[in-house]
Design a protein around this nucleic acid. Structure first.
Lengths: 207, 207
DNA sequence: GTCTATAGGCAGATAGAC
DNA sequence: GTCTATCTGCCTATAGAC
């Protein structure tokens, strides 16, 4: 596979650059920033990633792959449809808690200035997420663990939109309550609920 | 008021810069870009806006004010709660159709690199939107034109999150269907609906 | 693989003439 | 108000020594 040994300089570069992209955006980080944080010189970065565009592509490709692995992990660890959706939402929450945005949400605003392969990877990320969610949603509905009208793929796109947006607003305003609140309401839209009232606002104290 | 005369150079600068920020982001536009589009030299821009931060602040202040005026216009033109919410959604749709993002959604991703006054204006924008929506939602519920559980302010934040996110994903992927679909489903969450099915997927052919 | 040195360009900003 | 000229600094990227 060609992936082994210690932390590996290339991987450390990707880790640092990932953090910078997710917190500042693609156009607001430089090779100088990365080099400083990694502890090598700017020029050495070019040995690992010839151009910034190459680094960017590697970044989003790795992110996409890691996210897919997280989705598989959710299906392995959690059997219930509600739990799987909660796990999905928690993925976003964990990113936000690190004071980061979803990398592809970040790159979505930078789309007009991105090299085409990166733009296509960003689209691919969203579509993959929708596809995974649509499967979970459809299966949940069949099993009567979830209840919602319309196509599962539409509801899946709704999930992605709401979570990306809640993260965006929470990140931009510094008010994470935007995210917590939106997550709860979002999950309530597919709950096999008593239809009205209840369901979110749950929030039992962790004991 | 100090505002009169023809198009005014300052206003033209703001128009150009606004378009650039909404399509490329704060860190991806330069005084050179603006100067070229306006038809004057870079140095002349500094006469109107001493620094890029000054220009940025003016940009978001004006955007915020214009948006508030649009909200007031909706209340003047439309009496029904459903119609007002549809009008609100249409505001976002119109921006997206111009291949732009909401300015404050754009700036939300750039937050970490923004001068503090700009960041605070971005927060203020979101909060203003939530406040306006909460009023419309609460009034609609009282009048039985809308039906939804929980606090109106929570549902208002949910609206903002979903619309910003749908716009973000649609912009980043070039697939506007993300936005159309999310809008329909969002409005359906407050419809005094027959509870299940129906309501979105409406889309009667324009005749 | 990492370094020093440097190229070439663009960024935001200023001085001063007109 | 707008111009030319210029400054300083950072950007991405390359050459070539170690």
């Amino acid at each position: 596979m060609g992936r082994s040994r210690a932390p590996g300089t290339a991987a450390r570069i990707l880790d640092i650059a990932e953090r910078l992209v997710q917190s500042r955006g693609y156009n607001a980080f430089s090779y100088a920033d990365v080099a400083h944080a990694v502890g090598i010189r700017k020029a050495s970065l070019h040995y690992h990633f010839a151009t910034k565009a190459d680094l960017g592509q590697a970044l989003v490709a790795r992110y996409r792959q890691a996210f897919l692995e997280s989705l598989r992990s959710i299906e392995t660890r959690l059997a219930g449809s509600q739990e799987r959706l909660q796990g999905y939402v928690a993925l976003y929450g964990a990113v936000l808690r690190k004071k980061r945005m979803c990398m592809c949400g970040m790159l979505a605003t930078d789309a007009a200035t991105l090299p085409r392969p990166m733009r296509e990877s960003v689209s691919g990320f969203f579509d993959e997420n929708v596809a995974w969610l649509a499967r979970v949603l459809e299966q949940g509905r069949k099993r009567h663990e979830l209840l919602f009208p319309g196509a599962a793929s539409e509801r899946a796109a709704f999930f992605v939109s709401t979570l990306e947006g809640a993260m965006l607003v929470a990140h931009g305003s510094g008010n994470h309550e935007y995210f917590e609140s939106a997550s709860r309401q979002l999950l309530a839209t597919v709950g096999p609920g008593r239809s009205k009232s209840r369901r979110y606002g749950a929030r039992r104290p962790a004991r």
